[in-house]
Amino acid sequence: MAPGQNGDRRAAIVRTGLLFGLWTILAGTGVADLLVGTVVAALAARVSLNLLSPGPHRVDPATAARLSLRFLLQSVLAGLDVARRAFDPRLPLRPGFIVYPTAAPPGLFRSAFTAFTSLLPGTVPAGPAPARGADAGGIVYHCLDVDAPVAAQLAAEETALAGVIRDE
């Protein structure tokens, strides 16, 4: 019981802190701003805890920072990739669907993974694979180039993300 409560408290403090930071960016840092901000941040943190209970997930800040850098690089590559294809007079596209088999059950990690990969080069997640059949449990991706090593790239991203959001 006790560890769970500790986790809850820690999540509450971290989220209140982050939301308070957002408030100071938006509203300023005068005395009245800060006073109102604590109330607003606490309220928003409560909403957040209701919607997303701390659960077994833990976010590691150091790895998260590294992942953000990787993500920035990837999204630049994604933009360049699309720009190259759009400006190329031959329009080099081989679009199609692939199914990426993932072991992640539906939940926060899987949603974060699809959101993350939707911003990567060449892939847009297009929902879960049909519930029955060989692909059950996988995620359907639409790719600009089905011959590219998409699955390998997605697997690398999944490993990277798993280092940030992990089950304890």
Binding site: G79, V82, R85, A86, L91, P95, G122, H142, L144
Partner: peptide, 22 residues
């Protein structure tokens, strides 16, 4: 340009999201 040149909804989606995000 991608929005105008790409052949279908899904490929256009790539053009819009990736290029506009960056």
């Amino acid at each position: 340009v991608g929005l105008l040149r790409f052949p279908d909804t899904l490929t256009r989606l790539h053009a819009l999201t990736k290029a506009d995000n960056i």
